[in-house]
Design a binder for these strands. Structure first.
Lengths: 356, 356
DNA sequence: ATCGTTACCGGGAACGATTGCGTAAAAAAA
DNA sequence: TTTTTTTACGCAATCGTTCCCGGTAACGAT
């Protein structure tokens, strides 16, 4: 079934004009008489004419659409990012095509090919945990495709990037654990090759050393798929519990890792923050309703999406090749709740629950 | 900046052939000699030729893209649905354009216009709570636009629809509350005009009457935006707590309403399931980690997305106008956890936490 | 009377790909 | 050898739109 739309030809035929005249009348050209314009405009309105964007795309060699690749949509952080992207794109007449890599480099590549063959005007990407070979992306970029990275950025490719201050986020969280009285702080991290993993790890280590605590590599565990596969988190926790000198707190470095840790700890019968303190990056709005309410580092996800999109549009609409790229660094927010309160408060604070 | 792609003309020019020959060679037409084919194919491969989908769209009058309208992406239920939609669409060479109504009829209308002007081949929609006037949608459908509704369907428009057995879901949940010993069961529902709200309310009422309990209209509260605005939920709860004969359990009829109720109850210092039993529709995978773990009615969201997309593609690719429409009804699943356990068990069950 | 302006409008070539039709040359049949 | 058939390719129209060229009036100035 097809959906037949009105074209400029229909108007031309009905009004006994040429298509060029109609086109010009619609674009309010100076060489069309006011009467003709009025005629065309009114008729176009009457039969509900809308220019065919596909024909325009062909003519102007641009599709007015941007591609977005994230690892998964069903993740608060990314869906908030997408929200931000969408709001800006929409306001500028662009549409957004979303695809998911599901942390697979293959799927990411496929999506990339798909999106470019669909001739998107630009791309906003957070690479998968698995991606090691950026040559395809690099080639794309070299051939002129505007790209903006966010979250998991690629150092090898020079373009606009949007991140948060991961170092500081991790530093603050770890410091908070230290100040709360935790002595042996472990971390469950993302795939070590990832930019965010490195930065967060660096912040974690810095906080430890600056407070006179030594960095114990056996307390650093990695989950290759960033918590998307729960058994990886389980494995990490199992490892952490092995030695006699168990940690007394965990800093989790990604959304799914944070809730994953809680899930595993609880399933093993441990209590938080009794047996372990827990803090992590997370953007779920349910963290305060969890048992226990989780202390989290929250990223300004919506804003990140907005910023990334503005940068991309700037790139797309620039007449000359852009060579001056910037990396926007937004700040995280540490929300302190029960999960890092070493001495369990019997009376739960409820006043702040209504916020958001 | 533009991203210059290789065209069929480039190949033709380089090989001293006509564009038609190249086109036919690429499509493996019988009237092209094997040598020429080989030549073209190899050269196309070499310079990384990809047919321009926009030119194809213009020629074939189809864009191979489908539009999706949901109220918000950052909602587990909808992002799971989108996941399902995307997986099927992708496998069939379609791309998905997503937009959000944010429960506003105006935004929904705008999105609709935008998507159709972008000439999508079909639409998958869950209408907003606010939408009362379906004439635009109806007109679109009458003019031949393939549409599939899911979740919040529109009775006035005859087309494929995908829902769950809302009646049974609500009935089961309410019955579960009754069997757990709750005596005065309230419900917090969606906008009353919504199909899902009606069906769930009917299931709730049926369960009550069938178990010899009377339906008390003062125990039925509505939230016009389905929990998206928390103050509406707060207002509803406040109303429920007014009369002396307070309810002892709440059945919430949407994802955000369920977590919203928990949020409000906890912020007011009530305990669940001590002061109130709570069960509701929800697709978050965090419900078992909440305090208390929530009993929920879970919808097969991913599958719903798949089914809806298959139906839509069927509609799009049908040669003749389809007049025989079907409504697929999937089944919900009741997951029983702490929030409906009238007598608080001291030892929390942890074995099932690892599932999913 | 001739020329230059100005005001309006149409023809037709793009954009990239497909496809019906026409046709030259080569191969097969007469 | 002539006719017919097959093979293999090119021409041109098409999709909807824009825009570069024109073209033709009407009118004033010379």
């Amino acid at each position: 079934m097809k959906f037949e739309a009105v074209t400029i030809k229909d108007i031309a035929k009905a009004l006994g004009l040429s298509t060029s005249t109609v086109s010009r009348a619609l674009r309010d050209s100076y060489e069309i008489s006011p009467e003709t314009k009025k005629l065309v405009l009114e008729y176009a309105e009457k039969i509900n004419y809308h220019p065919n964007p596909i024909a325009l795309s062909l003519k102007e060699r641009r599709s007015r659409s941007i591609g977005v690749i994230v690892c998964e949509i069903a993740n608060s952080y990314f869906s908030q990012i997408i929200n931000g992207i969408e709001s800006i794109a929409y306001n500028n007449g662009y549409n957004v095509i979303i695809s998911q890599s599901r942390e697979s480099a293959d799927r990411e590549m496929l999506n990339l090919q798909y999106l470019t063959s669909r001739s998107v005007d630009g791309l906003i990407i957070s690479v998968s945990t698995e991606t090691k070979d950026f040559s395809y992306l690099k080639e794309l970029h070299d051939r002129g495709m505007p790209i903006v990275f966010f979250d998991r950025i690629v150092d090898e490719i020079e373009t606009h990037k949007v991140i948060v201050d991961n170092y500081k986020g991790a530093y603050d969280a770890t410091t908070h654990l230290i100040n709360s009285g935790y002595k042996r702080i472990a971390t469950v991290s993302n795939a070590p090759a990832l930019s965010i993993a490195k930065e967060r790890l660096a912040g974690y280590k810095a906080a430890l050393t600056e407070h006179g605590m030594e960095v114990d590599e056996s307390l650093i565990k990695y989950c290759a798929h960033g918590g998307m596969i729960l058994t990886e988190v389980e494995e990490a926790i199992k490892e952490l519990l092995k030695p006699k000198n168990k940690p007394d707190a965990i800093f989790a470095s990604a959304d799914k890792l944070t809730t994953g840790c809680l899930r595993i700890l609880r399933s093993k019968g441990y209590t938080v923050p009794g047996d372990f303190g827990l803090v992590g990056f997370s953007n779920t709005d349910l963290t305060e309703l969890l048992d226990p309410p989780l202390s989290v580092i929250r990223q300004p996800a919506f804003e990140m999406g907005e910023v990334a999109t503005n940068l991309l549009l700037q790139l797309i609409e620039s007449k000359r090749p852009v060579t001056d790229f910037e990396t926007k660094v937004l700040t995280t927010e540490l929300l302190i709740r029960e999960s890092t309160r070493k001495k369990i408060a019997k009376t739960k604070p409820v006043a702040s629950l209504l916020k958001e």
